[in-house]
Simulated scan of single mutants.
Amino acid sequence: MEALLTSTAMVALAEIGDKTQLLAIVLATRFKRPLPIILGILGATLANHALAALVGEQAAAFLDGLWFRYLVAASFIAMALWTLVPDKLDEDEARPSRFGPFLTTLVAFFIVEMGDKTQIATVALGARFHSVLWVTAGTTLGMMIANVPAVLLGNQLIKRVPLAKVRIAAAILFLAIGLWLLAQTAGSL
Rank of each mutant, 00 (worst) to 15 (best):
I145N: 03
F102Y: 14
A121N: 01
G178C: 09
I16W: 03
T45V: 13
S75C: 06
V148N: 02
I145F: 01
I41G: 04
A14Y: 07
P149A: 08
M114V: 13
A14Q: 05
L54D: 01
L84Y: 02
A74T: 03
L163I: 15
Q156T: 14
L106Y: 08
F62N: 01
L23H: 09
V148I: 15
R30K: 11
G126A: 05
G100H: 06
A127H: 03
G100L: 07
A127V: 06
A53F: 09
I25S: 07
A94H: 03
L179E: 03
F99R: 09
S188K: 13
S7N: 00
L106N: 00
L103K: 08
V132F: 09
A169V: 12
E57G: 04
V135A: 02
F109S: 02
I38K: 00
A44W: 09
V132G: 03
A78I: 12
D92M: 05
Q58E: 13
T139K: 05
T140R: 07
L39V: 13
P96G: 09
R69H: 13
A171T: 10
T29G: 00
A78M: 11
G115H: 11
E91W: 08
M1T: 14
M10E: 09
M1S: 15
A14L: 15
L27M: 14
V135N: 02
A59Y: 00
K19D: 05
L181E: 06
L5Y: 15
A80Y: 11
A94V: 03
L182F: 15
V151I: 11
L84Q: 10
A150L: 07
Y70L: 14
Q184H: 15
I41C: 05
L35D: 00
D92C: 03
G187T: 12
V148S: 03
L4F: 14
